[in-house]
């Protein structure tokens, strides 16, 4: 079923596979979206020292565990890529499902954390800090969810040994999601 790809898709004048090149451009557009959120947050934060009081109510432990979970799922993503390079589809799919599990764990921890905070009155309208806290982490979480859905789909095809190049692409996306969290974590949780 190679004909699902156009001739245009199969050419590679730059030497980078087409889908991977498109993924790099997607990441570029994501960099500027998160860049806009983080730049806005930073500008507010630097002019509002009083936000550190709000920030001290965030749960650093939950944030740290989540960082660890995402780092670990990133490791599984790169191991899945390695397995795909070895043409071992089922193994790649297994690693991808572990990555998926990492994303799920991340969201579960996040859910508990947020419901705890909301029940204590720290809602999105409580103050500008909490607005940014929920908006930035919410945009990030929506990327986590999107990545998980794509990962299920890729794992499904990879299990049959098809389209193994997609394993690397979804992995690259996942690493980017991880990278964003690496910066969100100190900005939202640690700086107090």
């Amino acid at each position: 079923m190679a004909s699902q790809y156009t001739v245009a898709h199969q050419r590679s004048a730059t030497g980078i596979p087409t889908s991977k090149l498109a993924l790099w451009w997607l990441l570029c557009s994501e960099i500027v979206i998160f860049g806009g959120v983080l730049a806005s947050y930073l500008m507010f934060r630097l002019t509002h020292p009083e936000w550190s009081f709000d920030a001290s109510h965030t749960n650093t432990m939950a944030g740290s565990i989540n960082t660890f979970v995402l780092l670990t799922s990133s490791l599984f993503a790169v191991l899945a890529h390695h397995a795909a390079e070895m043409k071992d589809g089922p193994k790649a799919a297994r690693y991808l499902m572990m990555t998926f599990g990492g994303g799920l764990l991340f969201l579960i921890i996040k859910g508990f954390e947020w419901s705890f905070e909301i029940s204590h009155g720290y809602t999105i309208t409580a103050s500008r800090f909490w607005s940014f806290y929920y908006t930035a982490a919410g945009i990030h979480a929506s990327h986590v969810i999107a990545g998980m859905i794509i990962m299920l789909w890729v794992a499904n095809t990879a299990r049959k040994g098809k389209d193994l190049h997609r394993v690397e692409n979804v992995g690259l996306y996942w690493h980017f999601v991880d990278l964003v969290w690496i910066f969100l974590f100190p900005l939202l949780y640690i700086a107090k």
């Binding site: 980078i16 790099w24 570029c28 960099i31 860049g35 500008m43």
Partner: peptide
């Protein structure tokens, strides 16, 4: 990775630095 990927990623980071 091919250098062009690094360039495009760095360029978009630079635009964000410029913005800030």
């Amino acid at each position: 990775e091919r250098p062009i990927v690094r360039y495009i990623l760095i360029t978009s980071l630079m635009f964000m630095l410029l913005f800030f």
